[in-house]
């Protein structure tokens, strides 16, 4: 059973890209257009992994992370920051804040899925489109 992945992203094109890539690789997705919704959806549906933009309305990525890590039910869910903040020092800042991974935008569609899957146990990894 492939993982269910929550995408928290306020930019519609970026959201559609990640959603398309994930679903094309056999994952089911949940979506949230801002931080507050992301936390609510995570609490309701407990996804297996969360990819999270940093600059979002209501709650930003850091605030979302804080809420998730304080929730006993969600603190084990890996959270990956996917952000266009990719100047020198941004990666360190993100990882120090407690995100499990850091992907900078623009993402590379060829490698995005395999890198993300490093954060999932093998049983939850998706099927390749080629494998269909």
């Amino acid at each position: 059973m492939a993982a269910r992945i929550l995408i928290a992203e306020d930019h519609p094109a970026s959201m559609e890209l990640m959603r398309y890539l994930l679903e094309a690789n056999g994952y089911s997705t949940l979506t949230a257009g801002n931080g507050e919704v992301a936390v609510a959806v995570a609490r309701r549906d407990r996804p297996d992994l969360i990819v999270c933009d940093l600059q979002m309305p209501n709650l930003n990525g850091y605030e979302v992370l804080e809420a998730l890590k304080l929730d006993a039910n969600l603190q084990c869910v890996p959270v990956i920051a996917v952000t266009a903040f990719s100047m020198m020092g941004d990666r360190e800042k993100v990882l120090t804040a407690g995100f499990d991974g850091y992907f900078s935008k623009p993402i590379e569609p060829e490698t995005f899925i395999t890198q993300m899957e490093l954060f999932l146990p093998p049983a939850l990894r998706g099927r390749r489109p080629e494998g269909e």
Partner: peptide, 11 residues
């Protein structure tokens, strides 16, 4: 600048 490039390179 990176945000729109994400969609261009991605799609």
């Amino acid at each position: 600048l990176r945000t729109p490039l994400n969609a261009v390179i991605g799609f």
